[in-house]
Design a binder for these strands. Sequence first.
DNA 1: GAAGCGTGGAA
DNA 2: TTTCCAAGCTT
Length: 371
Amino acid sequence: MEKWSPQKIKLFQEKLLDWYDQEGRDLPWRKDHDPYHVWVSEIMLQQTQVKTVIPYYQRFMTLFPTVSALAAAPEDQLLKAWEGLGYYSRVRNMQKAAQQIMADYGGQWPNTAAELQKLSGIGPYTAGAIASIAFDEKVPAIDGNAFRVFSRLFEVDVDITKPQAQPVFYSLIEEVMPAERPGDFNQAIMDLGSSYMTAKNPDSEHSPVKEFNQAYLDGKELAYPVRTKKPRPVPVNYVALVIKTPQGYLLEQRSSKGMLANLWTFPLVKWQDLSDDEDLKTVALPQLATDYLVSTSNLRLKFRLLPAKIVTHTFTHQKWSLTLLFAETTTKQDLSFFPGRLIKASDFASVTWPKVQQKLWDEYQKSLSVD
DNA sequence: GAAGCGTGGAA
DNA sequence: TTTCCAAGCTT
């Protein structure tokens, strides 16, 4: 790995910051350096694209304009504001951190990366981003962009998916970043990584720092960053129960731990792929659904299979296949024993749905219109 | 240190 | 359709 001279470092900083001053993006959270604004945007941007985040950010700031408003908000309102963004523990952790700031720091933001990292949901990257942007601390903010950019500039062969990579890049970036405008430097690196130095179709020919890009000069750009690839999602099968009663549809709130924690879906019953027998759907699955309802609430309902096909939804590490079953009762049911709630379609907005539940509902509606 | 945790877009 | 990627953190 080549070590840059002080002159080369200075030149790099100037080229990069000049470009950032000219071409840096004008984003809603860049209007000021308020730590709350920086923080909310950074959390939303974790593993999420800028275009997706913008409308969520605007809405969130209207609903929860300050740390104290966030600290005091009911959790269902927080989840609703986050609905569709994914990685829902982010917003729960954010509220915990807001409460920590109010209780442990007297409503005053800690202003160093080391202190910020003690807050819930704030790791090395986010701490570096807030400290450098809001408090002008000279500290790296190493996200996927920074890993990619610096691995190419220096042809770093360390696997970025390993925790081991963190200190390697940290000291490298600390060497290269300026004492002045550390926040702009970090953001410029990210803008560079999402414009010229992209993962798939980089355009380093036009990059403001192309002559510093060793991997590009060697024609080896796409070899960086080095990373081990993720395993493919594991298949999981469910029966999704669409139970319609005069009081509404039966929806269940998921456990407070694990996937889609505290979000609402139709009752989902997991099943193994027993066989590819043709009567699996017409016999085995309705029986499975009946057993589930009897065991949880002593309820007996006749099911029928909807004409719809199986709904699939892929998460980072699981691929769900859900078979819809429909049961309607015209008499009122006592579902007080059932771990769920009866909700009319007109009141669905009162609970938070994950995407997979929206898909189930859409598919159910479609199958009705086919009938 | 590896696994768990959502969703949307691009090729 | 499949695969990979996008401003990561927690356990």
